[in-house]
């Protein structure tokens, strides 16, 4: 029996299942790129911070609301946990998946709205994009995260609509979850770096 190039014996071709569904694989690659994007922003922030003369946060700038945002962070993390349990229920076909997903979406929406209110307050205190390095990096990094949170919120709403109609498949739901876990997971890092 002839062998192939690497000396392996000939075998009948077997079509294997892909290791990961297409959507999951594509979303994982995309999220890896997003992680690099955020680490670029974080690197820029670390370097900007190290350049500050007179300490960080710069004197004469408004303080960032550390405690309120800790509460908001907890809400976002709770949203991720809810989504995890929603997925477990979804796999079993349990009807409470719908409620859990809705809770997760509402918590995510709460995070975005609360963040917006915080921004309005900060702008009122004089912290703007052009007011200095702190303002610039704050709105850049937190704003970029907010854009992702809104996108993730929209994606989850879409999955909820499909779930409500009963035609949600795992191939839609899993990539959506990966994206939301990314949004949830990157936030504590940003909170720790930017606020604390």
């Amino acid at each position: 029996m002839p062998d192939d190039a690497l000396g392996r014996p000939y075998q009948v071709p077997v079509k294997r299942e892909p290791l990961l569904p297409n959507g999951v694989m594509g979303m994982l690659i995309f999220v890896a790129t997003e992680v690099m994007f955020f680490s670029g922003l974080i690197s820029a922030f670390v370097i900007g911070k190290s350049n500050a003369i007179g300490g960080w946060p710069p004197p004469g700038q408004p303080r960032l609301p550390v405690e309120e945002t800790a509460f908001n962070t907890a809400a976002l993390l709770a949203s991720g946990v809810c989504l995890y349990f929603a997925n477990r229920a979804f796999r079993k076909g349990a009807p409470r998946a719908k409620g859990l997903l809705l809770t997760s979406i509402l918590l995510g929406g709460f995070f975005v709205v609360f963040q917006g209110a915080e921004w309005v307050a900060l702008v009122g205190e004089g912290l703007t994009l052009t007011s200095g390095q702190l303002g610039g990096f704050f709105y850049l990094i937190v704003g970029t995260h907010a854009v992702h949170a809104v996108a993730g919120f929209a994606i989850l709403l879409y999955t909820y609509r499909k779930l409500a109609h009963g035609d949600l498949s795992g191939f839609t739901f899993w990539p959506a979850q990966i994206f939301w876990y990314f949004v949830v997971g990157v936030w504590p890092v940003l909170y720790w770096l930017v606020y604390l």
Partner: peptide, 16 residues
Amino acid sequence: NRQAFVDTTILLTFLP
């Protein structure tokens, strides 16, 4: 600042 550049270089290189 020097140390920050070294740190972020290490982060950006090894993370991917």
